[in-house]
Design a binder for these strands. Structure first.
Lengths: 205, 205
DNA sequence: GAAAATCGAGACGACCAGTATCGGAACCTC
DNA sequence: GAGGTTCCGATACTGGTCGTCTCGATTTTC
């Protein structure tokens, strides 16, 4: 492909050789898309190359192996869930969980996550990248919790780092381990228990 | 069982041909062991066969493919965490989480889980088996919660099915997604928040 | 002791990962 | 725009593994 210099046509579809960042982005996008609608099983470097309009060697020049590519491609799905400062911890984490819920419903990100986990199992050296991706995902919750603590909305002795797992864990566990699609009821139940759990000790007195 | 007691020769290495359930068990055990100390990457059917003292064809006669075998082998790690009826919900779920914690510390079950997830990503048809395995793991928590509700130790409107994810999710998320080894502090923090969250409305008065 | 069920061994085809090489295309500098 | 440098495309090649298949051997069953 692309060797013959076809006289540049009016059409924009006439693609020159892709290079640098453009090629990188095209590869990541192609990887992600293939995972989503073909499944990790059928993901081959050759298919990625074809879909990205790139040679296989170009891929191997950028990533050490297939696993690293897959983990890296997952960040396309990583639109960060910013939490606005509403002033209510309950509403803020509910908002966050609702965002995550819609995430699990159309299962693009589920597939991307699954593929990443598979890649991680196949190549443990991708662990750092994988963990960092998760950390970025949960950061807004930490910030919301710190704001809430500053406002006195939650107890001062609440372990904020533990909140990461408490808030993100239930949906993840339900979807990815129990293999049950989470729903609104689950979100509300979790939010309720957590908020009661972190509330200051006494309203009276 | 396939094998009757064999007239034990002097040499213990003298093994007859394995058949039926004996062969099945040996294969599952070999699969599990290989995953634990070689990693899913290096898991090959050939290695499993060799370690189990069995032919490759014997494996393919029992499982459709490698993925199904891996998911099935995970149940070896599934020693069920029975929760005794102590009479204190807090102590009971703490006991459960401590059991899970020790689980995550020596990472046998982590590797088994990872391998299962990888297999799931590679072959979606294993999903039902995977979900059932998780469900079995969390059942003791459901039972403990029901006892607690009957005792009036937790609110009547607590959604018990949501508790599955709230209790099991944090450790799983921390270990498998954040890639941080959970510790005692996390367990205590989670237990504390959950127990406050499900406690009846007023202790005083 | 014969028939039936099961297993071992190995050959086989297909697929795919990852490496290596080299000519050509794109970019850059003067 | 000539010349040099960097990056890319294409392709061949090796090695490993999955999953299938066949057939002789072993074990169980009756």
């Amino acid at each position: 492909m692309g060797t013959q210099e076809i006289p540049v046509q009016n059409g924009e579809q006439r693609t020159k050789q892709m290079r640098g960042d453009a090629a990188t982005e095209a590869i990541l996008r192609a990887t992600h898309d293939l995972i989503v609608d073909e499944g990790y099983t059928n993901l081959t470097i050759d298919a990625v190359a074809t879909r990205a309009g790139v040679a296989r060697s170009t891929i191997y020049r950028r990533w050490a192996n297939k696993q690293a590519l897959v983990v890296d491609a997952a960040r396309i799905e990583l639109r960060e869930l910013e939490i606005p400062d509403i002033g209510s911890f309950r509403e803020e984490i509910r908002m966050y969980m609702m965002g995550r819920l819609s995430w699990f419903l159309n299962d693009e990100s589920t597939k991307a996550t699954e593929a990443s986990l598979a890649a991680l199992a196949e190549d443990p050296s991708t662990e750092a990248a994988f963990g960092a991706r998760t950390e970025a995902l949960i950061t807004p919750v930490v910030e919301a919790a710190e704001r809430a603590k500053a406002r006195g909305e939650i107890r001062q002795d609440v372990d904020i780092s533990a909140l990461k797992g408490i808030i993100a864990g239930p949906l993840t566990f339900t979807a990815n381990y129990l293999r049950i699609t989470p729903d609104l009821r689950l979100v509300d139940a979790v939010v309720d228990i957590i908020c009661r759990g972190v509330a200051p000790d006494d309203d009276s007195v």
